[in-house]
Design a protein around this nucleic acid. Structure first.
Length: 834
RNA sequence: GCCGGGGUGGUGAAACCGGUAACCACAGGGGACUUAAAAUCCCCCGGGAGCAAUCCCUUGCGGGUUCGAAUCCCGCCCCCGGCACCA
């Protein structure tokens, strides 16, 4: 708006330089250039989902922060490859298409077009020649290729798994779509179903995924989240022999104890296997609990209990996976009527089923030690089961009853010959002791589950498998890729959990690639996380139609040097990407196993102290802001809001600061005089270069900008006109944040070509950063009593002489006797007086 | 409950390795220019007392270590994010 008042017209400059970059290929590489680059630097940001609403300010914040880093590296002499793409498959797009009643194949291209327009407008250094669109057959052809590589290596397998099922919508729901046990759309209570799905065996890589975290330079918060998710725990697997029904007393009572030595592994005998982190408490196990779905439930259940057990199992199956795992509900469960033997005591323990034991963690069965586990304690209290102390922690002895579960450290009691042993020693000793009888071994367990990649949905890449009655599941031969997603007009997920693709008979009917018999295509599509799990590998190879990865180019550019993105992807996306990279390395397609050398999570932008949301109507719409202030000002303001890795609070008025700053830079540069720099200004300049150079490398953008503002205030102090040599380096330092105005000023200063090609990053001379006088704080008993200006590097005698010349200091010194003097050169002098 | 990250002026935030708390901005107040407004420029701006010099208080709360603590230690409170019946 007030362009005529600020000497520069943002929209004109921005249009001019964006056109220049396109014409001159400033930001893009040819495939030949990718091959020959000397200082490759792969600068990556998380590609967006191209929503109909357009770029969100959170996207712009992330991209700008990443772009500043890329431009900085470029000015430091790196050949920076900074690609962008679109993560356009997935439920998000599909649900939106359903909502507006249009087809995603029609919506996505226009969304991408709009995103492209906006991305160009914010002035990112994107390589528009290497764009990736996950929904384009030229991309998902290779996504399917990745699937086949895992399939061929035995890392993709089909197995049954429980899913959330809405009986009203007749569809599978993701956990996030279940609100309080009900479908988020129709409020119908959700139930569990078991259906056959494709899984990637990521658990095979659990230990490696964990170990490598020590080697990579990632935000601490992100690696912590991954460690937590992988969830390694050390413990033991212990087997409890099932007491056969014919050994049970006829009166329905419990069988008697036997000598522990007689409890041993016998071929063919059924065992209940449990995982426990506390094998030291084995003597305290007083009952067993199996998950309702546990396969041994059938054989354990007595005739008398069968009806009760079946009813409980049915109820458990009818509840959804989310509310099943709520911790705050009262424990429920029923006895099966079956028993097994505790290998430590020889006692017969009743076996219960309860939904607090989960089939998909450990072995789906636990030994219940109510004395030393909170959940087991609660369960035992609820059902009147025995609670036995086997750990004492000093104050108590073996006989002290337990008021609550004591899960801490201590010494063993009531544990026969292990009494008196410490918890940690007993873990090993007891496991070895039962191990001698074939009933136990130390074991590591992970919380991580295999990655289910099947989606009974439409908007994704078809899984490249053909089901043949004779040959089973067969991979589609590579030369037949891509398996093109057909245009299905009725893609609403209905029917009975079967993918919409199953409605297109002409598509799914095919012949078996192996035997030629009539066969049927897999009708599920794959998870969006598979698309995003390898896109960074594809960017530099986007120009090749005949191969997924060119070895030479991939070897040169990967792994990614710097990856910036949101921490909402700390676990799934970043873990899957690491897993796929490891697999592709093991299969010989690439020669590195960690995809991102450095990862930094950016913070979130809030507005006026509140989260932005559509319902609150406080969402920042970027286009009008860019319209009014220009991309440079907007970028600069976003980066000035707060520490990049923490985010910031966007306040509309705040943009005035960076706007005024850019105007003053413009004035100072366009009016600069050809003369020698002032020594004081030059000193400040060198200090500023030192600070900005160091801080930009660490993504400390807000303080870098503050330093540049401070410098300009010095260079313009008292209304003085700056010398050219005083402001030219400032233009270069500003270029990563405000690339368009920097280009224009660089040209104004008489340079040819883009500043990013021709400008050297300014050097600072440590000699010239040195102050010759400093303000020394003078304290008496730690309280500031004066400040004296003395030569830099002055010794204590000089400092004291100056300090004692201060009237106010003397006042306090005269009060008592000086006990001690602390002198920190160039900083302070502290008199300790009594 | 567990794991992260935080808590500093009216606001967003600075502060090297423990060394002058509040850089840089926003908002606010005052002034210059202007017929007027906008824009621009200059000055003030944590709280309290005082004409002033200057003094006292102040980094969520309570203790501690230290000549000296926003920073280190112990014990709490609160906010944000993630995980959560994980055996």
């Amino acid at each position: 708006m007030d362009d005529e008042n600020r000497g520069w017209v943002a929209s004109e400059i921005e249009r001019k330089w964006q056109a220049y970059w396109d014409e001159h290929g400033t930001n893009s590489f040819t495939d030949e250039e990718l091959r020959t680059a000397e200082n490759p630097f792969y600068n990556l940001m998380m590609f967006p989902y191209p929503s109909a609403e357009g770029l969100h300010v959170g996207n712009i914040y992330a991209f700008t922060g990443a772009d500043v880093h890329g431009r900085y590296q470029r000015l430091r002499g790196k050949d920076v490859f900074e690609p962008i793409g679109f993560d356009a498959f997935g439920i998000h797009s599909e649900n939106f298409a359903l909502k507006v009643g249009r087809h995603p194949m029609d919506l996505i291209p226009s969304n991408i077009e709009n995103f492209t327009r906006q991305l160009r407008r914010i002035g990112g250094m994107f390589d528009w020649g290497h764009v990736v669109d996950t929904t384009h057959p030229s991309y998902y052809r290779w996504t399917q290729w990745v699937f086949l590589k895992l399939f061929d290596a035995g890392l993709a397998e089909r197995k049954e798994a429980p899913v959330n099922w809405c009986p009203s919508c007749m569809t599978v729901l993701a956990n996030e779509q279940v609100i309080g046990g009900a479908c988020e759309r129709c409020d119908t209570p959700v139930e569990q179903r078991r259906i056959a799905q494709w899984f990637f065996r990521i658990t095979d890589y659990a230990q490696r995924l964990l170990d490598n975290l020590d080697e990579i330079d990632w935000s601490e918060t992100t690696t912590k989240a991954q460690r937590n998710w992988i969830g390694r725990s050390e413990g033991a697997e212990i087997a409890f022999p099932v007491v056969p029904h014919d050994e049970l007393p006829g009166d329905g009572g419990s069988p008697t104890s036997v000598d522990p030595g007689a409890v041993r592994s016998v071929d063919g005998a059924r065992m209940i296997r449990v995982f426990t982190t506390r094998p030291d408490t084995l003597f305290g196990a007083t009952f067993m609990v199996l998950a309702p779905e546990h396969p041994l439930v059938d054989v354990l259940t007595s005739d008398a209990q069968r009806a009760t057990v079946e009813a409980y199992r049915a109820k458990a199956a009818a509840s959804d996976l989310v509310s099943r795992q709520k911790t705050d509900k009262t424990k429920t469960g029923v006895p099966t009527g079956g028993y097994c033997r505790n290998p430590a005591t020889g006692e017969a323990l009743p076996v219960w089923i309860a939904d607090y034991v989960l089939m998909d963690y450990g072995t789906g069965a636990i030994m219940a030690v109510p004395g030393h586990d909170e959940r087991d304690f609660e369960f035992a209290t609820e059902f009147g089961l025995p609670i036995r102390r086997v750990i004492a922690d000093g104050g108590e002895d073996a006989g002290t009853p337990l008021e609550e579960a004591a899960s801490g450290d201590g010494t063993l009691v009531n544990s026969a010959r292990f009494d008196g042993m410490s918890k940690d020693r007993a873990i090993r000793a007891i496991t070895e002791w039962v191990g001698e009888r074939g009933l136990g071994a130390l074991r590591v367990n992970f919380r991580l589950h295999d990655w289910c990649i099947s989606r009974q949905r439409y908007w994704g890449p078809p899984i490249p498998i053909v089901h043949c009655d004779g040959c089973g599941p067969v991979g589609v031969p590579e030369e037949q890729l891509p398996v093109v997603l057909p245009r299905v007009e009725d893609f609403k997920p209905l029917d009975d959990g079967i993918s919409p693709l199953a409605r297109d008979e002409s598509w799914y009917r095919t012949e078996c690639p192996t035997c030629g018999a009539d066969a049927r295509r897999e009708t599920d599509v794959s998870d969006t996380f598979l698309d995003s799990g390898w896109y960074f590998l594809r960017y530099p190879n986007a120009g090749f139609d005949d191969r997924a990865l060119d070895p030479e180019i991939t070897g040169k550019w990967l792994p990614v040097d710097a990856y910036i993105g949101g921490n909402e992807h700390a676990v799934l996306h970043l873990l899957y990407a690491r897993f796929l990279t490891m697999v592709l390395k093991d299969l010989g397609h690439i020669d590195f196993e960690e995809p991102f050398t450095q990862f930094r999570a950016h913070g979130l932008i809030i507005r006026n102290g509140a989260k932005m949301s559509k319902s609150k109507g406080n969402v920042i719409v970027p286009d009008p802001i860019i319209e009014e202030f220009g991309a440079d000002t907007f970028r600069l303001y976003l980066m000035f809001l707060g520490p990049f890795e923490e985010g910031g609070d966007y306040r509309d008025e705040g943009i005035e600061g960076p706007r005024g700053f850019l105007s003053r830079v413009w004035d100072s540069v366009t009016c600069a005089e050809e003369r020698a720099p002032d020594p004081d200004v030059e000193r400040k300049l060198h200090q500023t270069i030192e600070q900005v150079t160091g801080q930009l490398a660490d993504l400390q953008y807000n303080t870098s900008i503050a330093a540049m503002m401070e410098y300009l205030n010095v260079a313009r102090a008292g209304g003085r006109t700056a010398a050219r040599a005083e402001v030219e380096p400032l233009v270069v330092m500003l270029a990563p944040f405000a690339p368009h105005i920097a280009e224009e000023l660089w040209e104004h200063l008489g340079h040819a070509g883009s500043i990013f090609d021709s400008a050297p990053w300014p050097d600072f001379d440590p000699e010239k950063t040195r102050e010759d006088a400093v303000d020394l704080a003078v304290q008496v008993n730690g309280k500031l009593r004066g400040t004296v200006r003395i030569p830099a590097g002055a010794d204590q005698a000089t400092a004291e002489a100056a300090a004692r010349a201060e009237e106010n200091v003397l006042r306090y010194l005269n009060d008592g006797e000086i006990r001690r003097v602390i002198h920190v050169p160039d900083r302070l002098l502290n008199y300790v007086v009594t």
